[in-house]
Design a protein around this nucleic acid. Sequence first.
RNA 1: CGGAGUGUAGCUCAGUUGGCUAGAGCAUCUGGUUUGGGACCAGAGGGUCGAAGGUUCAAGUCCUUUCACUCCGACCA
Length: 413
Amino acid sequence: MKQSQLFTKTRKEAPADEVSKNAEFLTRAGYIYKEMAGAYAYLPLGICVLEKIKQIIREEMNAVGGQELIMTSLQRKELWENTDRWSDENVDVWFKSKLKNGTEVGFGWSHEEPISEMMKNYISSYKDLPAYVYQFQTKMRNELRAKSGILRGREFVMKDLYSYSLDAEQHEKFYQGVIDAYMRVFERVGLGDDTFVTFASGGAFTQFSHEFQTITDAGEDVIYINRDKKIAINNEVLSDKVLQDLGVTRDELEEVKTAEVGNIFNFGTKKSEQMNLYITDENGEKKYVHLGSYGIGVTRLMGVIVERFADEKGLVWPESVAPFQIHLVSLCSEEADVKKADELYETLTKQGKEVLYDDRIGVRAGEKFADSDLIGIPLRVIISPKTLAQDSVEIKKRNESEAKIIAIDELLK
RNA sequence: CGGAGUGUAGCUCAGUUGGCUAGAGCAUCUGGUUUGGGACCAGAGGGUCGAAGGUUCAAGUCCUUUCACUCCGACCA
């Protein structure tokens, strides 16, 4: 991608209405645009990162047997009335509207009910189980207060996976598999060391749910961790009994601030009973389906990655989710040099490298460097009259301060 | 939803006890100079001062209402 053609540009000044690091840098670097409080548009660079994250999640979900689909944003009232979750008293984040004929509809803040309702059409025998489906969807939640940039919006992208299992054993095996898959996701996006599987409130269905909490000051949660025993407990469920159940004492735990990047639930058969989702087993008997729900906040995850790695100069992306692998910055202005820079860009691109090529003519070096730091691509390659004099380029990693000169031939290898 | 603060150019902001044609920097456009860490010079375009109503000879400035944004708290399956 030639930077002269890239839609949007960088900004020198921080937006006045953003405080969080993620919103400030993502806005300044041209990844996102705020439409209103808690609702952000994703610009071309932002899409690149989101798609990288989604692809990693997609691979891990497919690896545990998940199949991707996409549900609707508009949802029927009746489905949620069945489980008593339509009323604003029980669910306070609904966006609701009406069809022209007066029929009430909701904008999906979750898809547990609609997807389980749909499953009735496709699950009727024990032979149909297990079934694992997931989607990437824009969730709508009418939060009382949006905050922290893209960490907590009223509209955000979530990956939600749903499991439909024959019995508790089959469910449990998959559930554990998803825990592992989630941790692989967080490792791949660079947050493995900072992310903990955390015991959290489980709602009406089980004693605990599991949250995936990443240590960051930008987070809203407080959890207690024991790094050796790999135990983490959310503040909201911490009690003497829980400590005893988990075999740790209070003074073995460290208090940390975190952001919840994932959450998984076991619904048992409760929801399928409410919704009348059942199968016929080998003996011709009716059995309710075991249901699990597994979420990753995709846009929040992007924000947490920013919070974790950004420095005072701007974004710093891990290679796995960076919008481009290489930022080729040309300081050439003479025709012959420009041609060589163009050729290097072509060659790298042909090699399959993802390259953002700062081909802008007449932009000063300082501005290009500042932009490059702000955008945060992992490897910066500078080509200039100075480097071309020795058939070389200067390379520097975004997260390191040392730059070195290497021959162009060597770079291409 | 409770508390606090802020709305003036695309962005960041200044604008005195109400007073003349509402300003600066950045960004944009033109010309020049410069060319390895957000340069400099000269010029140009760009405004329903968040909105509505009111007070006044006169409102960006005072009053009322309202909308939006931010922060703290509460909430967050």
